[in-house]
Amino acid sequence: MLTKRIIPCLDVKDNRVVKGVNFLNLRDAGDPVELGKRYSDEGADELVFLDITATIRSKKTIVDLVERVAENVFIPFTVGGGISTANEIDILLRAGADKCSINTAAVQNPDVLAESAERFGSQCVVLAIDARRKKGESGKWIVTVKAGSEPTNIDAVEWAVNAERLGAGEILLTSMDADGTKAGYDIELTRVVAEAVNIPVIASGGAGTLESLAEVLEQGKADAVLAASIFHYSEYSIRQVKEYLAGQGILIRPVR
């Protein structure tokens, strides 16, 4: 039986880990190399690195930083942020990433998912969706792009289903409404997407209390939880989270 995964996320800007609320008001949270090493040593199941400045800064800087983080990370390592082609994925995989997440580029050109899955295998290809609740219509979410700044007309659930068909191996699902608020994940969004696809769904946005993590894994049917603030600011350690979840009867990889 596969265990549910606990995944710290490094949102990186100007070589520093930052964290904001609803993608705004960023504050410093530390050095990505140090934090990555710490989470790998402490028993995190995977690590995600998101270049939140994406398209603006030079790619070379990011590749160098990814390489330095990967050097100390002995758990699966996903890199995302501004990736638009299979060739860029190739460069990041060589720099030590195990998977790459694609967001805006996949919306603009869905073929990039198929091409990447064909070249590197579906297990390398993560589709990141930044979803926002549709105003005035309950149970509907739209896809937003460019770090959540631009809404589209695309339904988030339909997009997840399409992405699986195109070759995505995993969905990193972020609730824009919940991100950074620590008010709990969007359980409904996570459950609807998890039930619509046959690939793992990583719930993201809103991690706050230990109960909120258990809730999205159980009721939200997520395969993994992504969290940033609660780990960066040492509100909870990986061990505390895992011990709590194990106590709730959730199958996790214990920290030794």
Partner: peptide, 9 residues
């Protein structure tokens, strides 16, 4: 049981 088998076991 999903194939590919991806994760911790």
């Amino acid at each position: 049981s999903k194939v590919p088998h991806v994760g911790w076991a």
